[in-house]
Design a protein around this nucleic acid. Structure first.
Lengths: 300, 300
DNA sequence: CTTTTGCTATGCATAATATGCATGGCAACT
DNA sequence: AGTTGCCATGCATATTATGCATAGCAAAAG
């Protein structure tokens, strides 16, 4: 049973006549006769009762007609669905992000989702190491990272934005409330909770170096390994910290704020990273090459 | 999308290799390449990622594989089902019967049902007129009747059995308990409930004629138009009746019994009647031409 | 009662399609 | 470097589908 035969058969059944179906399908009538006859022989069943005036479905034909219509419709839907998968408007994309890149990831993902609403999204946070590992294992399709968090081969990256690492304070821990930027000397004796991360290491070095140039060492009371913990520590009054400025914008209702430090400037890039060595469905390709419409801000 | 392509595709997907599938299907490998390529072009989607060592399904291919298997299975099942309809092992048969032919209809239908358990059966009782009418309207596929109940053209009949019309009595109304056959003279003054029916009319005539030859008229106290009512009347003590002998066997727990009357012999045939002018599904053809295995009794 | 009409079925030629064979290209393993 | 196993391509062939002309048939029209 080929779908062509089924289509022919359905047309004949609906039309109630072979010549009628032939006219409708713009093919010659004899071919219909033959195809139907072949289908009948193949099934070993008479599908039509031939009268002089038209034809009538037999019981078997009636049943086949009903089921064939469903089958053909299923086939069409399957074709449509597969096509949509191939074009990337359907599919699923598994995304990872650092906490500190959420301000870039969220509007990006949101815009992508609005452009391709039928793509299923899986999103999770993780450390740079976890994300890179899962990316290489193929468990994640793309991850949002800070630049130079990775060095594996085959990983492509796209810079989404850049922001300065700033001093994160609460009103209580702010060494100079109301002043921005503040001079570096004001950091003497200020307790700090620094985030240890490969991509922030340059910042630490710069900070320590700059402090020592001013005659003091920074008072590092705590080191932590992930951004939300650093923020929690600052909010809990353990001290100040240094984080990409944009992260403050994801805590709009908290008391923390970001301030620049005069003479201390290290910038950090938020990047989208994916693996071009492993096969990616079209939906993922569309995701990694996605360009949000201009005018959409970072927070959305 | 032709089913042949889907079958090929599924084989390749399951085998994970075009040449493997080719060996399995006993066809040449290049054809597989071409058919798959054509399918891909038709869908506008890449279904496999071609590596040097074998091939791998893309996301779209994965999806198509799953759905194609279901589709192919559905198609097979449809073919099987239609075949079964055509062969008559499936379908439905609508049967009518007189009350008086139930002793023939029941074992016949039962044996047919055991031979073709997947055929749906609709069964109902009715008067000869109702049954013939519904048969001609196509609402019934076949009916069990008494012979010569019908005279319409196009109706074929098959004689299923013949039984004598006998005197139906209860122990109380029996004119000669323990004696069978009884002489016709004993019917003088015995109250009778006669069934008026075209096919029993010959019997009435014979009865009246024979009684009058013996010098008396039968005492007909009641005439009714259907067999169960006649039986009820006999059981209720209204009198005796005359019915085909076999009907007593469907009342094994009642007190009625059938006795022959000496010198009075009219036989009645139970027949299966159907309409050969209107199309009948194979299941009905199998029903009307059904031959219960020898050795099966009338009551089963 | 014959003719016309509308339908399906069949024979034959042709075009489209699928299939097989031989071969090329490619990468991995020996 | 040679071998092997894979997929892709070109070409010839067999199978299949399609179109045209026509036969057969019965109902409707004249």
């Amino acid at each position: 049973m080929e779908t062509r035969q089924l289509k022919l058969f359905c047309a004949v059944a609906e039309e109630g006549s072979m010549s009628g179906a032939a006219r409708k399908l713009h093919i010659a009538q004899p071919q219909i006769s033959r195809q139907i006859a072949q289908l009948e022989q193949e099934l070993g069943v008479q599908l039509f009762r031939r009268g002089n005036k038209g034809i009538l479905l037999t019981e078997a034909g009636e049943s086949l007609c009903l089921q064939a219509q469903q089958l053909l419709s299923s086939i069409d839907q399957t074709a449509l669905y597969v096509r949509s998968l191939g074009s990337g408007i359907r599919g699923n994309v598994r995304i990872g992000s650092l906490y500190s890149t959420v301000p870039y990831a969220m509007p990006y993902i949101k815009a992508y989702h609005e452009a391709y609403p039928q793509v299923e999204l899986y999103i999770r946070l993780g450390s740079p190491q976890e994300l890179i590992s899962d990316l290489n294992k193929g468990e994640l399709s793309a991850v949002f990272l800070r630049s130079s968090s990775h060095d594996s081969v085959g990983l492509h990256e796209r810079v989404l934005g850049e922001d300065e690492l700033k001093l994160i304070v609460t009103p209580q821990s702010d060494p100079m409330p109301g002043v921005d930027p503040i001079p570096i000397e004001k950091l003497e004796n200020i307790p700090m909770c620094l985030l240890r991360s490969d991509d922030l290491w340059a910042y630490h070095e710069a900070l320590i170096k700059e402090c020592q140039r001013c005659g003091f060492s920074p008072r590092i009371v705590c080191q932590c390994f992930d951004t939300p913990m650093a923020i929690q520590l600052v909010q809990a009054g353990f001290g100040v910290s240094f984080l990409p400025a944009s992260i403050v914008e994801t805590h709009p209702h908290s008391e923390i704020s970001a301030k620049a430090v005069k003479g201390l400037s290290v910038r950090s890039c938020a990047v989208l990273v994916w693996n071009e060595n492993v096969y990616q469905p079209s939906s993922v390709e569309r995701f990694t090459s996605f360009e949000p419409r201009p005018g959409q801000g970072r927070i959305g």
